[in-house]
Amino acid sequence: MDTTDIFLYAGYLMIVIGAILAILMPLINSLGDPKSLLKTLIGVVVIGVLFGIAYSSASGDVAAKYMADPFNITPQGAKMVGGVLLTVYALFLLAIVGIVITEINKLIK
């Protein structure tokens, strides 16, 4: 094991610790204010509903060459990836619309 492997494992460890802290710290801070937990829960539910709509409208079609080695893509996997992509597209569009509305609102005020 050379130093590159050691630094990679240290980086992986820091990513895991950062992810755990990114999830736990807001929860610990919001225990004093339960309304902020409700807002977070509403956001998670909205994204979940958006993903459900995107997943149900995604196609599970896979070309024959991708069903074989080395890809081994299943129709369920293709549908999941399609659902995630449609969700990302919808959130991106929603962010752009929000930015435009905010800038128009600043111009008016």
Rank of each mutant, 00 (worst) to 15 (best):
M1H: 06
M1C: 15
D2H: 08
T3K: 12
I6Y: 10
F7Q: 14
L8K: 13
Y9T: 10
A10G: 05
G11A: 07
Y12F: 07
L13F: 08
M14W: 14
I17K: 04
I17Q: 08
G18F: 03
G18Q: 05
G18M: 03
I20L: 08
A22T: 13
A22Q: 05
A22V: 11
I23R: 14
L24F: 13
M25N: 09
M25P: 02
P26K: 00
P26E: 02
P26A: 01
L27T: 09
I28Y: 05
N29Y: 07
S30H: 13
G32V: 06
G32M: 07
D33M: 04
D33L: 04
P34L: 01
P34I: 01
P34H: 02
S36Y: 04
S36V: 11
K39L: 12
K39N: 08
K39D: 12
T40A: 14
I42A: 10
I42V: 08
I42W: 05
G43R: 10
G43P: 03
V45D: 03
V46H: 08
V46N: 05
I47H: 04
V49D: 01
V49P: 00
L50E: 02
L50G: 02
F51S: 00
G52R: 03
A54T: 04
Y55L: 05
Y55E: 00
Y55N: 02
Y55H: 05
S56V: 04
S57K: 11
A58D: 00
S59Q: 09
G60A: 04
D61C: 08
V62R: 01
V62S: 00
V62C: 02
A63H: 13
A64Y: 04
K65S: 13
K65P: 11
Y66V: 04
Y66N: 11
M67C: 11
N72Q: 08
I73V: 09
T74W: 03
T74S: 10
T74A: 01
T74P: 00
Q76Y: 06
Q76H: 13
G77K: 00
G77Q: 00
M80F: 09
V81Q: 10
V81A: 12
V81C: 15
G82Q: 03
G82Y: 00
V84P: 02
L85P: 01
L86W: 12
T87Y: 02
T87I: 06
Y89V: 08
A90S: 10
A90R: 02
L91A: 08
F92I: 11
F92T: 15
F92N: 15
L93R: 12
L93I: 13
L94C: 15
I96A: 07
V97D: 06
I99L: 14
I99K: 15
I101W: 06
I101F: 12
I104D: 12
N105F: 12
K106W: 06
K109S: 04
